[in-house]
Design a protein around this nucleic acid. Sequence first.
DNA 1: GTGGTCTAGACCACT
DNA 2: GTGGTCTAGACCACA
Lengths: 131, 131, 131, 131
Amino acid sequence: MLIQIEPQLDVPIYEQVTRQIIEGIARGEMKPGDTLPSVRNLAADLGVNMHTVNKSYHELEAKGILTIRAKSGAIIRSAEERALTPEQLQQIEKNLKPLVAEGMVLGATVDQIECMMKKVFADLQMSAEGV
Amino acid sequence: MLIQIEPQLDVPIYEQVTRQIIEGIARGEMKPGDTLPSVRNLAADLGVNMHTVNKSYHELEAKGILTIRAKSGAIIRSAEERALTPEQLQQIEKNLKPLVAEGMVLGATVDQIECMMKKVFADLQMSAEGV
Amino acid sequence: MLIQIEPQLDVPIYEQVTRQIIEGIARGEMKPGDTLPSVRNLAADLGVNMHTVNKSYHELEAKGILTIRAKSGAIIRSAEERALTPEQLQQIEKNLKPLVAEGMVLGATVDQIECMMKKVFADLQMSAEGV
Amino acid sequence: MLIQIEPQLDVPIYEQVTRQIIEGIARGEMKPGDTLPSVRNLAADLGVNMHTVNKSYHELEAKGILTIRAKSGAIIRSAEERALTPEQLQQIEKNLKPLVAEGMVLGATVDQIECMMKKVFADLQMSAEGV
DNA sequence: GTGGTCTAGACCACT
DNA sequence: GTGGTCTAGACCACA
């Protein structure tokens, strides 16, 4: 799985790593039970510091997406282990709101936004099924 | 239009102001041609620093949502003046992607995510029509 | 409030800080609404690194004991804001179990252990009421 | 006696082994004079490294709970041989303190904590009498 | 070899 | 001046 870092972005590097790992899992490039690269290896690959990757892994653990086993690596949790709590859905909805509002104000119709959402979903889903 | 600041959030205050102004416009509480309160007044109302509001206004200008005229204040642009450029749509799509991916990974179905999106849209739209 | 670090202990420094802040709050030396010293100040006071204190603060935030407001400090949450969730009680019970078991195996009676627990509680409570 | 290892916990495996042996003795599943399985056998049963079990046995010896005799294995000491020293009680009290403090700060009453403690004790005691 | 912890520095965004 | 982020090193416990 390829991870691309853009250090000049205003999104923190650790957040970029987090997002791309999530997308990688969504795309099916990594599956439950898989072990992620060690923090040192991934850091070396990306050319960033170990701590930056470490922070990303811990963020993913907090999101319930993976389990960090001390001294043996980070493992992607299975769908059963991942609880889709109402809080998590609310969190996503909360983050969705300003995006939708901005789209509306700029003149996008509900169809355009829905279409965009479906496209994003389909892109990820398609890759997942293609695996 | 009421703006509520929550300083304990990790979202910067200027970003909170920006979002709520966008949502206010989306809801129809403010219309094209309307003049926003002066930076000084809004800052006083919210109990925040003048620079914070100023930054928010400039962010809105960069997004193409309003025009800042020295001395005469910030004016909301009309739909015609606001171009819905492909770049803007792409930007929104780019921001949408990690949210959708996280939802998927946590086990949400496309229906759940779509439903969430529609709900957010409807909330804003409804308010707009009620005005 | 005085915090004493013993670097030679096997308990990590950040954990020692966390515990002593919790005990300080239990003792009533700090109250809800109070702002903790800045990470840099406390780190300087304790002679440890900023990051170490930072980690402790974040641990306290994760426990629901305080709120970190970016760029303005860490504030102790009120009892109402702090949820005593069943998970938290379970966590404490889980940590209690090996201590009780060890006491039993070493020959302590339930009375001795209960007495010890009450003593600890009373020590903290007493200080709290004395404030 | 069954020992269950959960490698995903942040508690080191050797510590998990130590605790479960203590609990096993508290529950009466093992009695003074009994010989524990050899380091090699137990390690094989648990699927862990020999050194891990070895470390656990030595920790138990340091706590005064068993005696390791070269060649003839680890033998659980009798209650008479196990001294309940004030130092040991202090050690337990020291470990108890942060747990009680955290419970207090999160809003638990002395009754809740006492009840929890009794429950833990009763669970162990009950099993012991049932043997 | 792994993650955990810690140090000592740095720049930045926000207030 | 605050916390957030990042870097570049280091030692340790665990497996």
